[in-house]
């Protein structure tokens, strides 16, 4: 199986002098190209920092990140931007959308940057995706005129626009009610089964239980891992129990 992302002995620190602290303290991680993984851990354990490091959004102090056979620490800001725009998708907890643009414009924004001539095609693709996640009637709405769940669906559409190789999600259901959260997870599972790798950062056992591999972090290190069958089926409750048991076992 090909690895889409490889993190090798990543160290990321904040602060200077005696106040310097390693947020990532020699983390090594590998994600397969069709894998659905999640990272769990208490606040400050470094899980979001790991995601920012693996996606090239944040530099690292030492170690190495390889994305699709490209060493991210060896390439410049422009190429990093190109990779993020064309090969990665992102979903954040808060709807990271531009206030000035309507929903459709926000969704097509990253893809239309170099492809203005294909605006029609791009808009068509966006509409198809919006229909798929059930927000097709919202395209002209302002972002302040829709609910958090709807915004998050729009965020997923945006992440999918360039047919990325991986989707990074930082607490994508963190701001949603349980009904909306479940629907978002359904969409993400479907995307994964269609062949896109997904890496989620979460502190919610219900979300983690939907993924096939869970990495547990504490104090900047991956302290444990839990593997689950890829297909969720009807066993969601037992999967949640397993996750909770593991959390209790390692004390997070």
């Amino acid at each position: 199986m090909n690895k889409i992302v490889i993190g090798d002995n990543i160290v990321k620190s904040f602060g200077e002098g005696i106040e310097q602290r390693n947020i990532l303290d020699g983390v090594s991680v590998e994600i397969n190209e069709d894998e659905f993984v999640s990272v769990m851990g208490p606040s400050g354990s470094g899980k979001s920092t790991l995601m920012f490091a693996l996606s090239g959004m944040d530099g690292i102090n030492s170690g190495k990140v390889v994305f699709d056979n490209k060493d991210l620490s060896a390439i410049g800001e422009k190429q990093l931007s190109d990779i993020r725009r064309s090969e990665m998708g992102f979903i954040f907890q808060q709807p990271t959308m531009l206030k000035n643009l309507n929903i459709l414009d926000n969704i097509i924004l990253p893809s239309i940057r170099d492809n203005r001539k294909n605006a029609l095609k791009i808009s068509e693709k966006a509409r198809t995706l919006m229909e798929k996640v059930g927000i097709s009637e919202l395209e002209k709405r302002n972002i302040t005129q829709v609910s958090g769940g709807q915004l998050q669906r729009a965020g997923i559409c945006r992440a999918l626009m360039n047919s990325p190789k991986i989707i990074f999600g930082d607490e994508p259901t963190g701001a949603l009610n349980s009904q909306s959260a479940q629907e978002i997870m359904d969409i993400l599972s479907e995307i994964n089964t269609e062949g896109t790798a997904v890496m989620l950062v979460t502190h919610d056992a219900k979300v983690a239980a939907r993924t096939e591999r869970i990495m547990f972090m504490r104090d900047g290190k991956i302290v444990s891992e839990l593997k689950l069958p890829k297909s969720v089926g009807v066993n969601i409750d037992s999967r949640i129990e397993k996750v909770t048991a593991k959390m209790l076992e390692i004390g997070i």
């Binding site: 959004m57 800001e77 422009k78 931007s81 190109d82 990779i83 993020r84 725009r85 064309s86 992102f90 954040f92 990271t96 959308m97 531009l98 924004l109 990253p110 940057r113 945006r158």
Partner: peptide, 9 residues
């Protein structure tokens, strides 16, 4: 946000 989604400086 724009940088995250691949816009350069």
């Amino acid at each position: 946000v724009m940088k995250a989604f691949g816009f350069t400086n």
